[in-house]
Nucleic acid binder design. Structure first.
Length: 586
RNA sequence: GCGCCCGUAGCUCAGUGGAUAGAGCGCGUGCCUCCGGAGCACGAGGUCGCAGGUUCGAAUCCUGCCGGGCGCGCCA
C-alpha cells in the first residue's frame, strides 16, 4: 500500500506516459490551496518546457484523458497550468477502508530485511549526564523506532566514551590522592555508595581538567595514566572498570527514565582489541604512515576545496584517539553485524571528524561500498542568549533535574484536574511520567535536525499548544469517546460515509505514509511531528464541529466512530515512532 | 585564511522550484444546559538579511555582500 497521493501519482503518471511525457512529471500532491482542490499536479508546466509547447495546451490534453477515469469528482486547470483534482467520496472512502484494514496503516516495508547500526549515545563515563545528551538520544531513538517499523533490524549502540583522556585524569588523581583502595572497596549494589562516587567524580573532574590545562606536568601524568589504562595495567585498569560499572548504573537509569532504548551497551574500550590488528593492516598496506611521532592516515584528496587533516591513529605519546576507536568500531560492526547502514546521531560540530573516519574506512575497504555511512548531525543546543546552553550557575543542567522538573509539573497538573481523583498514586505517577517524556521529546523532535536550537525550559515543560501533552490529550480524548461508544453499544463501521465535516480529517488520514517516508529517508523525525500535530489538530476541529455519540444517522455515527478509531491508531503509532507513549487517561 | 551551517511574524520554529509564505507562544474577540476547555473558532502581526542572476514561476537554485554560529593534527 501507499499514500493516496502516491496512488494518484501512479494514475496521473500513466496518463503523462500515454502522451509521451515523462511519467514522473505526473506526481500528485496534496493541494496548497484546499479552497480550490484536494490534490494538484504541476507536471504540465514542466512538461511544456520539455515538449516546447504551451503548458495549458498540454494540461488540456492530459485532463481530457484523466476525465476517462471515474475516480475523479472534479478536474480543472488553473493559472499557468496547474491541474487541480478532487476525488470522489467513494474513492476516498475505499482508500480509507483499506488503510483501516491494514495493520501497518498503509506504510510500506522493506522487501528484504537489512541491518542498521545506530549510534546515538556517546555519554562519557564518570560524568553526570546533562541536557547536552538529550538531542542525540531523542533523535536517534526515534530513528531506531522508525527504521524498525520500516523493516530494518536495528541495533542502537550507546557507544559510551570510556577510553579517553578524561579517564586518565581522574584515575591519576585518585592514585595521587592515595584513594585507589577506597574506590575499589565500593559495593556497586549499594546505591548510596555509588551515588557518592558519582558525586565525587563530578567534583574531581573539573578540578583535574583545570589543573591539566594550566600545568603541563600534570597533563603528562594524565596522558601517561590514559596509556596505562589502555594497556590494561592492573591497578589502572581495575580502577577504570570500577568507575565504569558505577557510571553505567546511572546512565542506564537516565536513559530508562527518558524511555530511550539501546540494544548494545558498548563503549570505546570494547574495540580495543581490534585496534592493533587494524593498525598493522593499515601500515602493511601503506594507508597508515608515521608523521611527527604520530601514526596517521592521510585522507585528503586532490579535489578537496578545503584542508582535510589526516586521521590520527596513535598520538606521539602512544595513546589512541576517538578517531582510532571510531574506525575500529566500524571494523567490529561490519564483522559482527554486516550492516547495510551505520548512522551516527552526533553534534554537527563533529562533521569533519566523521568525514575523516569515513574516508579512511572507505579507502582501506573497512566498510565496503554497500555499507552506508552517515553522519546525521544536529545543531547545537543554545541558551536564550544564542550561546551554548549553560545554567545560571555556569554549569550544564543535569538530565535528571530536567526530568524531575517536567514530572513535577505534570503531577501538579494532574492534581488540579478533576479526573485524577480516582487515580491511584501509581497511575498518577505513570501518567505524570508519560506527560513529561512527551513534552520533552516532542519539543525537541519538532525542530529540524540540522539547525541549532534554543533550549528553553518553559517550552520543554509546556503542555499547551503544539506540544507532546496536547497530542496525548487528543488521543486520550478519543479513547474516552470510544469507550463510551462501546458502553452504549455503538461500534465503528468498516466503511466510511463522508460529509463536509468529515472530509478534512478523512483526507489527512491518507497522508501518513508520506510523512513516514520523509522522516525515514532524511533521518528527520520532525516530519512525523508535523503530521501528528496536524492530525491531532484536525481531529480537534472535527470533534468540535459535530457531536458523534448523539448522531441520529446510524451509518454516519458508525463511520465517525471509525474515523475516530483510525485517528487514534494513527496518533498512537506516529507518537510511538517518536518514542512517546499514550496513557489511557490523563 | 579555508570550509560547513544558519538569517522567515514581537519570541520559538515549519516550509520536497509553483497559486494568497504557515504553526505554536504572546496579544485581541468570541465559545462550557452536549462526547474530556491540556480545547475550539475568529482577528491583528511579514521588504522571507541585502543586491544581482537563472526560470513562465524563487523563501527554496547560482553568484556577491552583510550579520550570527561552528570546525580546521596529537581533547571528545
Amino acid at each position: 500500500m501507499s499514500s493516496l497521493a502516491e496512488k494518484l501519482s501512479t494514475i496521473v503518471g500513466a496518463v503523462f506516459a500515454a502522451q509521451d511525457l515523462p511519467a514522473d512529471l505526473g506526481v500528485v500532491r496534496v493541494s496548497d490551496r484546499p479552497d480550490l482542490a484536494q490534490f494538484q499536479c504541476n507536471g504540465a508546466m514542466a512538461a511544456a518546457k520539455v515538449a516546447q509547447k504551451n503548458p495549458r495546451e498540454i494540461a488540456n490534453d492530459l485532463v481530457a484523458r484523466l476525465k476517462e477515469n471515474g475516480d475523479f469528482a472534479k478536474i480543472d486547470i488553473a493559472g499557468p497550468g496547474f491541474i487541480n483534482l478532487d476525488i470522489t467520496d467513494d474513492y476516498l472512502a475505499a482508500h480509507l477502508a483499506a488503510v483501516a484494514a491494514d495493520e501497518r496503516l498503509g506504510v510500506s516495508t522493506l522487501e528484504q530485511e537489512q541491518t542498521a547500526v545506530l549510534d546515538y549515545g556517546g555519554p562519557n563515563i564518570a560524568k553526570p549526564m546533562h541536557v547536552g545528551h538529550l538531542r542525540a538520544a531523542i533523535i536517534g531513538d526515534s530513528l531506531r523506532r522508525i527504521m524498525s517499523f520500516a523493516g530494518y533490524k536495528t541495533l542502537g549502540d550507546v557507544h559510551m566514551g570510556d577510553w579517553g583522556t578524561h579517564m586518565g585524569m581522574i584515575i591519576s588523581e585518585y592514585i595521587k590522592q592515595g584513594r585507589a583502595g577506597e574506590i575499589m572497596q565500593i559495593d556497586l549494589a549499594d546505591d548510596m555508595a555509588v551515588d557518592g562516587l558519582m558525586q565525587d567524580l563530578g567534583e574531581i573532574y573539573p578540578k583535574v581538567a583545570a589543573a591539566c590545562k594550566e600545568d603541563d606536568a600534570r597533563k603528562r601524568e594524565a596522558q601517561d595514566a590514559t596509556v596505562k589504562i589502555q594497556n590494561k595495567e592492573p591497578q589502572y585498569f581495575a580502577l577504570w572498570q570500577k568507575i565504569k560499572e558505577a557510571s553505567v548504573i546511572g546512565m542506564r537509569n537516565n536513559y530508562a527514565r527518558l524511555k530511550v532504548h539501546f540494544d548494545l551497551w558498548k563503549g570505546e574500550a570494547d574495540v580495543h582489541d581490534y585496534i592493533a590488528p587494524m593498525v598493522d593492516d593499515l601500515k602493511a598496506r601503506n594507508f597508515a604512515v608515521e608523521d611527527q611521532g604520530a601514526l596517521i592516515v592521510p585522507v585528503k584528496r586532490n579535489d578537496d576545496n578545503k584542508e582535510v587533516p589526516p586521521l590520527m591513529l596513535y598520538k606521539s605519546d602512544g595513546g589512541v584517539m576517538y578517531g582510532t576507536t571510531d574506525l575500529a568500531t566500524i571494523v567490529e560492526r561490519v564483522k559482527l553485524y554486516s550492516p547495510a547502514k551505520i548512522v551516527y546521531f552526533v553534534d554537527q560540530r563533529q562533521h569533519l571528524h566523521f568525514e575523516q573516519v569515513f574516508r579512511a574506512s572507505r579507502m582501506a575497504g573497512i566498510a565496503g561500498e554497500s555499507v552506508e555511512l552517515t553522519h546525521a548531525g544536529f545543531g547545537t543546543m543554545n541558551g536564550p542568549d544564542g550561546k551554548p546552553f549553560k545554567t545560571r550557575a555556569g554549569g550544564v543542567m543535569r538530565l535528571d533535574d530536567l526530568m524531575s522538573m517536567a514530572i513535577d509539573k505534570a503531577r501538579q497538573r494532574i492534581d488540579e484536574a478533576a479526573l485524577a481523583q480516582d487515580m491511584t498514586d501509581d497511575e498518577k505517577e505513570d501518567v505524570a511520567h508519560k506527560v513529561a517524556v512527551a513534552a520533552i521529546k516532542f519539543a525537541d523532535l519538532q525542530n529540524q535536525r540540522h539547525s541549532d536550537y534554543i533550549f528553553d525550559l518553559d517550552r520543554l515543560t509546556s503542555f499547551e499548544g503544539k506540544t507532546g501533552p496536547y497530542m496525548l490529550y487528543q488521543a486520550v480524548r478519543i479513547k474516552s469517546l470510544l469507550k463510551k461508544a462501546e458502553a452504549q453499544g455503538d461500534v465503528p463501521s468498516a466503511g466510511f460515509v463522508l460529509r463536509d465535516e468529515d472530509r478534512p480529517l478523512a483526507l489527512l488520514l491518507t497522508e501518513m505514509p508520506d510523512a513516514f517516508d520523509a522522516a525515514l529517508r532524511h533521518y528527520m523525525p520532525h516530519h512525523i511531528c508535523e503530521y501528528a500535530y496536524k492530525l491531532a489538530n484536525t481531529f480537534s476541529s472535527f470533534y468540535g464541529s459535530c457531536h458523534i455519540l448523539s448522531e441520529e444517522d446510524e451509518a454516519l455515527k458508525a463511520s465517525r466512530l471509525a474515523l475516530c478509531a483510525l485517528t487514534c491508531r494513527q496518533l498512537e503509532t506516529a507518537l510511538s515512532w517518536l518514542g512517546i507513549d499514550v496513557p489511557e487517561r490523563m
